[in-house]
């Protein structure tokens, strides 16, 4: 087992092991961009590990040196001299060959909302506002039911029967419709943020939310102010999520 005590072998084992775990151990698969960041950290850590004292560094470098200069290692050297350029070439090929898929893009999923919007030529505040329908505790049930109806009529085709983003049209859209069950969407937004998004839709998004335009329609001409608040209420009610509260300034 002295083979395993060589720092060089350890380093290779750690790197390969980490890659396998990150690539295949995370379900659903992690995006490639994240794996790249993770692997960069692992490489850095491994380099620190092998070089954190002189003995260890020597035990790491020696095999590399031997492979490069030892007369006895000539065959290994030859194999590497053929293999490494081929691998690099393959890498270059994967980078250059364009697939049918749109390239990965950074898109701000939740850009900063405006502090107020024009809704049917009326100014509506977004910043610091709560859903006005919640104040009317007696009728909340009624509003939720109305919201459900609005949802089924207008939103279901994209956002899905189960509010999970898997509606009929979803497969054709990029970016895909929001999955409201996901704790990363409405659960972390204030209700007035939703009001803005529903009223202004994809066209209302700032540039940082491009390059692919969102298919989310702007509903301001089709739904009234009250209806938008109702469907918002429904989204939280149906998913069991709580809207984020506004923080009070001290």
């Amino acid at each position: 087992m002295s083979f395993l005590r060589s720092r060089f072998v350890q380093a290779v084992v750690i790197l390969v092991g980490a890659f396998v775990v990150l690539r295949f151990g995370i379900r659903p698969p992690a995006p490639w961009s994240v794996i790249q960041i993770y692997m960069a950290v692992v490489v850095l850590a491994v380099l620190i590990y092998v070089s954190s004292d002189t003995d260890s560094w020597r035990s790491f470098v020696d095999p590399i040196r031997a492979t490069l200069v030892d007369p006895g290692r000539r065959p290994v050297r030859l194999v590497l001299a053929v293999l490494l350029p081929i691998l690099l070439g393959y890498y270059a090929y994967t980078q250059a060959a364009a697939g049918p898929e749109a390239p990965a893009e950074l898109r701000a999923v939740h850009p900063a909302p405006p502090s107020s919007i024009q809704f049917r030529s009326k100014e509506i505040n977004i910043s610091g506002v709560d859903n006005p329908l919640r104040k009317d505790a007696a009728n909340v049930k009624k509003h939720v039911a109305a919201g459900g109806e609005i949802y089924v009529r207008n939103c279901m085709y994209c956002h899905g029967d189960n509010l999970d983003g898997h509606g009929r049209f979803a497969a054709a859209l990029n970016p895909p419709p929001a999955n409201f069950e996901d704790p990363g969407t409405i659960a972390m937004l204030q209700e007035s943020y939703l009001f803005w998004r529903i009223a202004k839709g994809g066209p209302g998004l700032p540039r940082e939310s491009t390059p692919w335009s969102s298919a989310m329609p702007a509903w301001e001409d089709r739904l009234t102010e009250e209806q938008i608040w109702q469907v918002t209420l429904y989204l939280y009610d149906a998913t069991g999520q709580e809207p984020r509260r506004w923080e009070t300034a001290h």
């Binding site: 659903p28 749109a102 939740h110």
Partner: peptide, 17 residues
């Protein structure tokens, strides 16, 4: 906000992993 391709986003069931 992850950098994802459309395919990755589909596999993840949204833009959130």
């Amino acid at each position: 906000s992850l950098i994802v391709t459309l395919e990755e986003a589909r596999a993840m069931g949204g833009t959130h992993h």
